[in-house]
Each structure stands twice: as C-alpha cells, then as structure tokens.
Design a protein around this nucleic acid. Structure first.
Length: 479
RNA sequence: GGCGAGGUAGCAAAGUGGUAAUGCGCUGGUCUGCAAAACCGGUAUUCGCGGGUUCGAUUCCCGCCCUCGCCUCCA
C-alpha cells in the first residue's frame, strides 16, 4: 500500500505520512475564530485539511482529528459586546453557523472540537510550567510574557533569526499596551484584565485576565493528542508568529518535540490579491449561493488547485467546477450501480490489494503531496475512454463495477457531492406552459413544420429550458 | 530591509535534462431538417528576459525584470 507523502514546512522536505504510534494519525488544525461568518478563504484551509484527512483515511489509516474553536480573543470580545450578547451566547451562534457551512461543504467533522474558553485551567497550568522553567515572566501589570531569548530554538519553523525579528519589529513594537515586555519579540501568554474586556476575564495566579491567543492551541493540542503528535495544520499566514510561538511554548514546557510535521496551505486570492474586508472582495458561503452556485461547486473549485499554490477565486472557475462535476456525475450514473460509500473504501484501503484500475494514477497523484491538478488530469485521462465505451453501448458489468470502485476513491477523496442527473423526475418540475410549448414543438417537428418547430424551441429556451432530442422523443432540462 | 511563493497556450493548471498532461473556452467533424446533447479531432516549434553548463534545458547554474504573500490580527 502506497502512502501519502507531504511537504513538511518544518523540514522543507517531502515526508512520508504515517502514525507514529502505529495506530492513529493524530493531527491538530487551527480552527475558526467565531466572531462572524467564515469566508471562502478560511474554507480553503479547512477543505485542504479535509482532503488531507480523506486521503489518509482512504489509504486505510485511522485518524484522530482535533480542530479548535477560538472563542476568546480581541475580536470575539469586541463583537460580542457590540451585539449585547454574552461572549458564550455570541460565539455559540457563530459556531453553529460554521457547522452548517462545514456540513454544506461536505467536510468531515473533526473527532474533537475543543474551545479556548473551556480550557482556561489547562492554559493557566501551561503558563505555570513555563514560569517554573524560566521561559516566562510576569510583568508589572498582571500579564505574563514568554521570553524568547530563554528559548534558543526560537524561529526554527520560519527560520527567523531573533536579530532580524527585532530589527524588523522596530517600527511597530512600541504599541502602548506592550510596554511591559522585556524584549520586543516576547509575546503575551496571559493578558491582564482591561476595562474594555467587560465581564470576560478569568482568575489566575497573576490576577484576572485572559489567555493569549497562541496558548490555546498548545494547551488543547497537547491535552488531546499528547505532548508530541503527528501533524499540525493551518494557513500559511499562521506560520509566523502563531505557529512559531506555539512551538516555543510547547517545546519549552515539555522539552519534547511538539508536532512532528507542519502542513500549511496557501491563500485563496480574489482579483489577484488577498481577500480582506477592507478591499471588499470577501465572499461567504451565502454570497456564493446568492451568485447561483452551490457549496459542492465551491468545494470542487477550491480543491482544484494545489494546496501550496495561491489560487485566484473567480466565477469562471466556479463555472468550470459546475461543468466538471456534471460530467463526473453523469459518468457515475451511466456506470449504473451507486458508488461504494466512504466507509467501505476506508476499510478496503488497508488491504494490500486495493485496486483502482484506470484511476490508479489519479490516486497516486494525490499521494504525492496532494497534487490535485495532476490527479484531475489523470482522472480525465481515465474517464475519456470510459465515456466513449459507454456512448457506444455494451460495457460489461464487471468493467463498470471496477471503474465505479476506482472512481469512488477519487470522488470521496475530493469529497465531491455530485449533482443529481435526473430525467423523469425533473420532468415533473417543468412548468406546464413549458411542457405545453415543448409538446407543440414536437408535433410541429414531426409534421416537418421546421419554422414553427424552431419558433417553439426558441420559446422554450427563453423560458430557461433546453430540449434534448432523441430518436423517439425528447427531454427537457433547465439551461 | 529580512523570509517565502510564483511567472507554461484565450483562461486555469501539471510536468520532465531529450524536444510540452489535463480542464474550461474556441474550432472542424459525426449525428440532426437545423440545432442542443453525445462522441471523434484540432488548438503552446514553445515554457518571464539575458547569459552559462550540456550532444541536448522549459526543466541545472548566474544575473535581471515582474507579480504575490508573511514579518501587526489573519486560513
């Protein structure tokens, strides 16, 4: 059984992916900050992680997937207070929305979804440990900082030298609320309570306050996955400082390696630049629906580029996704029987004789650093002769079944939700006046009244329907 | 300034030291009264620019130009 190889941000090398404990592949993904609807760039990250998990599981490896909910930070507190809801109520609402979106996008649920506010004690303990080890210090105002100079490996993920860091930080490091730091690149572990935090504070040995942002992932990752686990994922922007700081906190406290591998996805661009509220190029799933596209089409589109390359979101790209999904769906339909389920495939993925037939090379492309464009290329190469045979008729059932089995691995790896290719059922939804026009047109055609026939066909088209003729009848489809 | 990604057909996008996958689009054909659908075929003598190494480079090396990201919250 071939295994997935993945580019590891830490080693900058392609690594074989397998569970260190031989049983479950344990990985942590930085989850959403729940202060509003996630945008499609956020979803690119979660979809790439979903693809990653599916490929591992389809190759027969069990996983333990943890993805956190960030429900306490500057933004959640600020927005909760604006909304006049408690922080808990406010973040619960957006967490729910996130779950709905994730479901529409056919994302597998993580096995555990811990939230920061539910893990204050764990975070406090971690700080205590860091202070004991001499890696953290309380400041005069009741905050606690991590001392970067106390940890000699600082910067190993992004290869940032402390000197460069300080030089680069020179212009921006004098924020009024950061004056308590010993060193400009030290970062906060515990933030002392401020008036603007309202009721959102917790007790600690250093006084009231709340945990710093980087801390939650360290505390929860180690709690649920162990002090060392297999992989940690997130968007490229998180490499620095978030992941760098996580590594520092975690490894300084345990003396052990934190995550064995780091997996980062590139950003989604819109109109050639990063999505942001200020540029007004930010789309949510609702916006996508409003433009007439489905979550399934978005999923196809966002996963059609390689995860380490920036991709530019466009509605042309969405159209392409729609067309390709239809093509795959109609192939599946023409192959007769339904697709085997994801669970069935995960079971057979562990067996040595996992055979994908013509789809083998497509699958292998995925195993090489999740090379989605190559996998799609190979997929269409495999599909074409099948389409031809099916168009010509007479394909043996065995061939169909084998093709369906192989294709299913790709469909489930990408998590595609295929559109229904309906004929009879759909006909029921055709408005009566359209049916009427189509029927009259069919009669005119039979009588070889081409002018009238064409006129009626145009009328049907202008109603938003397409007529597909066959030898002894016709079908209507929405255009 | 530091670190990093990338420049391949109209668009999107793989890839390799030996002469360019694939998808969309466009285009020709089969079918059709004509279309649509479906299927068949065509669509980069060339891979940002200039040098170098080599029998041979898009792929390796050097220089240059351009785009984008991170270095502050960020998927």
């Amino acid at each position: 059984m071939k295994r997935l190889h993945l580019h590891d941000t830490l080693s900058r090398d392609r690594c074989e992916i397998f569970p260190e404990d031989g049983e479950k592949f344990r990985f942590y993904c930085c989850g959403p900050t729940v202060y509003g609807p996630a945008h499609i760039g956020n979803f690119r990250a979660f979809l790439v992680q979903d693809l990653f998990r599916r490929v591992i599981e389809l190759s027969g490896i069990k996983t333990l997937h943890v993805r956190n909910i960030t429900d306490v930070d500057d933004k959640t507190i600020r927005e909760a207070q604006k909304s006049e809801l408690s922080l808990i109520e406010f973040t619960a609402g957006w967490t729910e929305r996130f779950h709905q979106d994730a479901k529409q996008l056919n994302m597998l649920d993580p096995h555990l979804e811990p939230s920061a506010v539910q893990h204050i004690p764990e975070q406090v303990q971690l700080i205590e440990r860091l202070i004991e080890n001499g890696n953290a210090y309380p400041s005069g105002d009741g905050s606690v900082y991590f001392s970067v100079k106390s940890y000699s490996n600082y910067g190993k993920l992004t290869r940032i030298d402390q000197r460069d860091l300080m030089a680069g930080a020179g212009e921006t490091a004098n924020d009024a609320d950061e004056y308590e730091k010993d060193n400009v690149c030290d970062f906060v572990l515990w933030k002392a309570r401020k008036p603007e935090d309202g009721d959102n504070y917790w007790d600690s040995p250093w006084g009231s306050g709340r945990p710093g942002w980087h801390l939650e992932c360290s505390a929860m990752g180690m709690k649920y996955l162990g002090e060392t686990f297999d992989l940690h994922a997130g968007g490229v922007d998180l490499c620095f400082p978030h992941h760098e700081n996580e590594i520092a906190q975690s490894e300084a406290s345990t003396g052990k390696q934190f995550a064995r591998h780091w997996f980062h996805n590139e950003h989604l661009m819109v109109d050639g630049s990063k999505m942001s509220k200020s540029l007004g190029n930010l789309y949510t799933l609702t916006d996508i629906h409003d433009r007439g596209f489905s979550a399934a089409e978005l999923r196809y589109s966002l996963l059609s580029g390689s995860y380490r390359t920036k991709i530019n979101f466009s509605f042309d790209r969405m159209n392409e996704a729609r067309i390709n999904l239809k093509r795959i769906a109609s192939l599946v339909q023409n192959l007769g029987a339904g697709l085997p389920s994801y669970e069935e495939l995960c079971d057979c993925g562990s067996s040595e004789d996992m055979n994908l037939g013509p789809f083998e090379s497509s699958w292998e492309a995925l195993l090489e650093d999740l090379n989605a464009p190559a996998a799609l290329g190979e997929l269409f190469v495999a599909i074409k002769p099948l389409e031809k045979e099916l168009a010509e008729g007479d394909v043996p059932e065995d061939t169909k079944k084998a093709a369906l089995h192989g294709l299913a691995f790709l469909v489930h790896a990408f998590g595609w939700v295929l559109p229904e290719i309906e004929s009879e059922q759909l006909a029921l939804d055709v408005p009566d006046h359209v049916k009427d026009l189509a029927e009259k047109r069919w009669i005119a055609k039979k009588e070889k009244d081409w002018a009238e026939s064409d006129r009626l066909r145009d009328a049907v088209i202008s109603e938003g329907w397409v007529i597909k003729d066959s030898k002894d009848g016709y079908e209507l489809e929405p255009s």
